[in-house]
Simulated assay, not measured.
Amino acid sequence: MDEYVVSAVFQTHSAAEQAVRKMGEAGLPIKQASIVGQNLQSTEQVHGFITTGDVARGSAGVGAWVGGIFGLLVGAAFLWIPGVGPLVVAGPFVASLIAGLEGAALGAAGGALVGGLVGYGLKRDKALKYETAIKAGSYLVLMHGSETECSQAKEILSAQGGQDIALEAKGK
């Protein structure tokens, strides 16, 4: 049986998390889903006074998201990727990304994130687009599985507002 990968970009981590939850509600295997995002710890205040309570409330929201989504997805890592910066990865994509980092450390061409995405089954041009989206603050949702599972996931990702959605056969 061929393995496929479906991917989509979301503008917010809450939208990415909601899409993964919808896939789970539809009976898709969440253990095969991953979310990749950056800057989850940053909080911006435009003007005014800030108190420790303000910071705690903002951090609690980030902590709730990280805890909630990590509870759904198998495996999680916080990594510092050269050229990308801090990256939080939840799901089975962690192993592929770590392999990409090892390859980059050994002098492989291209960035570690792009290498990890290509190793996961995405085409290089799509991986480059996704790296750019992640650097810009978007979140990438990935899921691997059978053609039927990934086709169903693609429909859900689209219905949830995913952008730049792709469905590809791994290794082809």
Rank of each mutant, 00 (worst) to 15 (best):
E3V: 08
Y4C: 01
S7P: 02
V9I: 15
S14K: 11
S14V: 00
A16W: 06
A16L: 04
E17A: 15
R21G: 00
M23Y: 04
G24N: 08
E25D: 09
P29L: 08
I30W: 02
K31S: 10
A33C: 12
S34Y: 03
I35W: 06
V36M: 13
V36Y: 09
G37N: 11
G37M: 15
Q38E: 00
N39L: 03
N39F: 02
Q41F: 07
S42R: 09
S42L: 04
E44C: 10
Q45S: 04
F49R: 15
T51D: 01
T52W: 00
G53W: 08
A56D: 02
R57M: 11
G58P: 04
S59L: 15
S59E: 14
S59K: 15
A60Q: 07
G61K: 14
V62N: 14
W65S: 09
W65I: 10
W65C: 04
G67E: 07
G68A: 11
I69P: 06
F70C: 14
L72E: 13
L72Y: 13
L73T: 09
A76G: 15
A76D: 04
A77F: 10
W80V: 11
G83N: 11
V84I: 12
V88I: 07
V89Y: 00
F93V: 08
F93G: 09
I98S: 09
G100L: 11
L101T: 00
E102D: 12
G103P: 06
G103H: 09
G103S: 13
A105C: 14
A105T: 14
L106P: 00
L106N: 09
A108D: 12
A112G: 07
L113Q: 05
G116R: 12
V118C: 07
V118L: 06
V118A: 07
G119Q: 04
Y120D: 01
G121Q: 01
G121R: 02
L122F: 03
K123T: 00
K123Q: 04
D125I: 05
K129C: 01
E131R: 05
E131W: 03
T132K: 15
A133I: 00
I134P: 01
K135M: 06
A136D: 11
A136I: 01
G137Q: 05
V141E: 07
V141P: 09
M143I: 05
H144S: 13
G145V: 02
S146Y: 08
S146M: 10
E147T: 05
E147K: 11
C150M: 08
S151I: 01
Q152S: 09
Q152K: 13
K154N: 03
E155Y: 04
A159Q: 14
Q160H: 10
G162V: 03
Q163C: 06
D164P: 00
I165C: 06
L167Q: 02
K170S: 03
G171T: 09
K172R: 13
